[in-house]
Simulated assay, not measured.
Amino acid sequence: MKIVDFRSDTITKPTEEMRKAMYEAEVGDDVYGEDPTINKLEELAAEKIGKEAALFVPSGTMGNQLALLTHTERGQEIILEENSHIFMFEVGGLAFLSGLQSKIVKGEDGILNSKVIKEAIRSKNIHFPQTGLICLENTHNMAGGVVTPLNRMEEIFKLAQQHRIPVHLDGARIFNASTYLDCDVKDIAKYCDSVMFCLSKGLCAPVGSILAGDKKFIEKAKKFRKLLGGGMRQAGILAAAGIIALEKMTHRLVKDHENLRKLAFGLDDIKGINIDKDKIQTNILMVNLKDTGYNSDSFVYEMKKEGVLATKIDEHTIRFVTHYHIDEKDIEYTLNVIKRILN
Score class of each variant (00 low, 15 high):
residue 145 G to H: 02
residue 135 C to D: 05
residue 139 T to C: 15
residue 82 E to T: 03
residue 49 I to P: 10
residue 71 H to P: 05
residue 145 G to Q: 08
residue 125 N to H: 08
residue 78 I to A: 02
residue 33 G to Y: 08
residue 138 N to C: 12
residue 137 E to L: 01
residue 95 A to C: 06
residue 103 K to V: 14
residue 39 N to D: 05
residue 106 K to S: 14
residue 43 E to M: 06
residue 147 V to S: 03
residue 64 N to M: 04
residue 81 E to W: 14
residue 116 V to Y: 00
residue 134 I to C: 07
residue 132 G to K: 03
residue 56 F to I: 05
residue 149 P to V: 03
residue 74 R to S: 11
residue 113 N to G: 00
residue 124 K to T: 12
residue 52 E to S: 11
residue 129 P to V: 00
residue 48 K to Q: 08
residue 117 I to S: 09
residue 106 K to Q: 13
residue 150 L to C: 09
residue 120 A to Y: 01
residue 86 I to A: 04
residue 42 E to G: 12
residue 106 K to A: 14
residue 41 L to V: 13
residue 47 E to D: 15
residue 52 E to Q: 13
residue 151 N to V: 05
residue 66 L to S: 04
residue 80 L to H: 08
residue 110 G to C: 04
residue 41 L to A: 05
residue 146 V to I: 10
residue 142 M to Q: 00
residue 145 G to L: 09
residue 72 T to C: 15
residue 149 P to A: 07
residue 35 D to C: 15
residue 95 A to M: 06
residue 119 E to R: 03
residue 33 G to R: 08
residue 68 L to N: 00
residue 154 E to C: 08
residue 93 G to A: 15
residue 102 S to G: 12
residue 94 L to V: 13
residue 116 V to P: 12
residue 112 L to Q: 04
residue 77 E to Q: 10
residue 135 C to N: 10
residue 142 M to S: 08
residue 95 A to N: 10
residue 86 I to W: 08
residue 66 L to H: 12
residue 75 G to S: 02
residue 96 F to E: 09
residue 148 T to K: 04
residue 151 N to T: 13
residue 144 G to Q: 04
residue 99 G to S: 06
residue 107 G to M: 05
residue 81 E to M: 13
residue 151 N to L: 14
residue 149 P to R: 09
residue 100 L to C: 09
residue 131 T to P: 05
residue 61 T to P: 07
residue 89 F to V: 07
residue 154 E to K: 09
residue 89 F to Y: 08
residue 111 I to N: 02
residue 54 A to Q: 06
residue 47 E to M: 15
residue 80 L to I: 14
residue 99 G to P: 07
residue 83 N to F: 03
residue 46 A to W: 12
residue 101 Q to P: 01
residue 129 P to D: 07
residue 65 Q to S: 09
residue 123 S to E: 10
residue 143 A to H: 07
residue 94 L to C: 06
residue 96 F to C: 11
residue 58 P to W: 03
residue 120 A to H: 01
residue 84 S to T: 08
residue 104 I to M: 05
residue 65 Q to K: 03
residue 105 V to T: 06
residue 120 A to K: 00
residue 66 L to T: 02
residue 66 L to C: 06
residue 132 G to M: 01
residue 109 D to M: 10
residue 84 S to R: 05
residue 113 N to S: 10
residue 90 E to H: 14
residue 51 K to M: 11
residue 153 M to A: 02
residue 49 I to K: 10
residue 52 E to V: 00
residue 47 E to H: 12
residue 123 S to I: 08
residue 33 G to D: 13
residue 131 T to A: 12
residue 71 H to W: 15
residue 127 H to S: 10
residue 76 Q to G: 01
residue 121 I to A: 13
residue 43 E to W: 05
residue 58 P to R: 13
residue 133 L to I: 10
residue 51 K to E: 09
residue 138 N to Y: 12
residue 39 N to P: 03
residue 106 K to H: 14
residue 100 L to N: 02
residue 40 K to W: 06
residue 151 N to R: 11
residue 53 A to Q: 07
residue 99 G to C: 06
residue 41 L to G: 06
residue 148 T to F: 11
residue 57 V to S: 14
residue 100 L to H: 02
residue 104 I to Y: 04
residue 119 E to C: 11
residue 137 E to T: 00
residue 76 Q to Y: 13
